[in-house]
Design a protein around this nucleic acid. Structure first.
Lengths: 176, 176
DNA sequence: ATATTTTGTTTGGCATAACTAACTTTTTTA
DNA sequence: TAAAAAAGTTAGTTATGCCAAACAAAATAT
């Protein structure tokens, strides 16, 4: 029971795509599923049968395809992981947008609950702790290029950081 | 050409295990490979043939198994990713040791070069920037539990952080 | 209403990657 | 050195998941 859904990566991808097509196109069609997953139409039929047997989609030959509540729950979970991973990769690690999305798409199938929770908590921590935040992430870019920390600016960087927090704390007090 | 090696996750695992067995046992044996990967002995033979065809292992029936330079290069790359991911998950996200290792073992096959580089750079940045470092990571634990930042302590936390840096900077100057 | 196009399905094939069980080679031990 | 045990291989089976190509149903256009 390492991976929540117990499904193959392939079937998880089908559910994720079907959910998205339901949202954008109102309805999911085999042709669109095939396009999104970059596979042939014929391959979709077999997968739908498999998902139907597992009670994750409502499907019979030539019918419209919809997710069952059970299938939707899994699809939403995968989508949540995808978005969380993508945001971390793009906003924190500052990987380019395409790579962030593609990598998130692969990682979403192998990350476990505990790690995902911690990652999201970490993402939140970076943005809420005064010691980090947006300017700290900006400095990361410089660190990435130079591969070493620029100690000359640390004193000023820390002073600015402290001053900003005190100003913000003051504003917050005033509102109480 | 998204994934460096072009190998399946399965074959990457074989190479990784063979490298480790070479290091610890001097030599890799089919039986040990099977144990490590939790598969049957019979399954190993086919994989070794496949790796042999690809020029990644030196192998003929009943012979000892060693990595070719090409195979060793890939094995080392996978191992490097494994270690880097595991350390990030364990030391930064503070996931428990077993989960960190197991998750790293799955992620190592799906992470790309750019993302891996950035992650390692980020790991380094956390440890070398005075605004973060070990005490900042300790505070992450509290943030994880409470799910919100404790603003009461931020002023002191920042002051201590600045003072520590100045003290350290002073020590560094003295050595010049 | 019928012909055409689009969409969906079926069939058979291929590749991967595992399994079991029988068999062979190698190694150990008596 | 011969028997027994351990390690390795082979053959046949299974499951997943894709493909191409032929076929069937549905939708669109004339």
């Amino acid at each position: 029971m390492k991976k929540g859904s117990g499904l193959s990566e392939s079937l998880e991808d089908y559910l994720e795509v079907i959910l998205d097509l339901e949202k954008t196109n109102k309805v999911a069609r085999a042709k669109n599923i095939a396009e999104r997953l970059d596979i042939k139409r014929g391959s979709v039929t077999g997968a739908l049968k498999s998902l139907e047997e597992k009670g994750l989609v409502n499907y019979s030959p030539y019918s419209y395809i919809t997710l069952t509540p059970k299938g939707e729950k899994i699809a939403r979970e995968i989508t949540r992981r995808h978005a969380g991973l993508r945001d971390f990769l793009y906003q924190v690690l500052q990987v380019d947008a395409e790579t962030a999305d593609a990598t998130a798409c692969r990682m979403e199938h192998v990350i476990d609950e505990q790690t995902m929770d911690r990652l999201m908590c970490f993402f939140d921590y970076i943005h809420s702790c005064p010691r980090t935040g947006p300017d700290w992430l900006e400095n990361f870019t410089a660190h990435c290029s130079s591969k070493r920390h620029d100690w000359e600016q640390c004193d000023q960087c820390l002073s600015v950081c402290l001053a900003r927090h005190r100003k913000k704390a003051g504003t917050m007090d005033a509102h109480e």
